[in-house]
């Protein structure tokens, strides 16, 4: 946990994202039908989901640790990770909707990917409501941790597996062109990988800031 007070990885994250803004908008990309220039959304929309996934994984890690040790800090860390993840979840949904408006003609066209993403969002909103509705600290921590551990695989199935098995119009699903094994473009990796790593690290960073804020609050309450 000492990592969260170091600054080298935070600077790395900022440099990576900053470089991806330039490379992502300026480097040439493959000319593909339907996608056109919006193929560049790969550098800005997809990393939102990567950031979300990263903090959700960390939150599951701390949920498990909380159940093993019963340390209050782990419960706080896990909850703050979920909150940060929900923010990136919303950003992913909104950026996806903007893209859908100009590609599919509507912000929401009940595509399997969109629908299951919405269900997954509700799943985590339910987590927040559940956690906030329990007053007693240990009970809250336990129930939230168990819920979180079960919610994570369901979310992964909803967002990353189910849409790919049906006729989703989302790039990468159902044979639609996207960055993948069909048209792997080495040039795109220059912007894509730094963006993915950078946004993941920024998501972690925001989660640690939230966690430290909660920790100060928690310590304050312990003293008084």
């Amino acid at each position: 946990m000492k990592m969260i007070y170091h600054s080298w990885w935070k600077w790395t994250a900022l440099v990576l994202i900053f470089s991806s803004i330039f490379t992502g908008l300026l480097l040439p990309v493959p000319r593909l039908a339907i996608l056109h220039e919006t193929i560049r959304n790969l550098y800005f929309h997809v990393p939102m989901w990567m950031g979300m996934l990263t903090v959700f994984i960390i939150s599951v890690f701390y949920s498990i640790n909380y159940l093993r040790t019963g340390k209050q800090e782990y419960d706080l860390a896990s909850a703050e990770c979920v909150k940060t993840g929900l923010f990136f979840y919303a950003m992913g949904l909104i950026t996806g909707m903007i893209w859908a408006k100009f590609t599919w003609g509507d912000y929401w066209s009940n595509d399997p990917k969109q629908n299951s993403a919405a269900i997954g969002c509700l799943l985590y909103c339910a987590y927040m409501i559940l956690r906030n509705s329990i007053e007693e600290e240990q009970k809250r921590g336990k129930i939230a941790a168990i819920y979180n551990i079960f919610a994570f695989p369901i979310m992964v199935v909803l967002i990353f597996i189910l849409p790919r098995m049906t006729d989703s119009l989302h790039p990468g699903s159902g044979g639609n062109s996207a960055f993948g094994k069909y048209d792997l473009d080495n040039g795109m990796k220059v912007a894509f990988y730094p963006a993915m790593l950078g946004w993941s690290l920024v998501a972690i960073w925001i989660a640690t800031l939230r966690y430290r804020m909660q920790l100060i609050d928690y310590n304050q309450n312990q003293v008084t």
């Binding site: 007070y5 600054s7 935070k10 920024v202 960073w205 925001i206 800031l209 430290r212 804020m213 100060i216």
Partner: peptide, 15 residues
């Protein structure tokens, strides 16, 4: 973000 980080550092020191 960096400013929030610094502010938190200060608060943690004070605490």
């Amino acid at each position: 973000l960096i400013r929030i980080d610094r502010k938190l550092n200060r608060l943690e020191r004070v605490q």
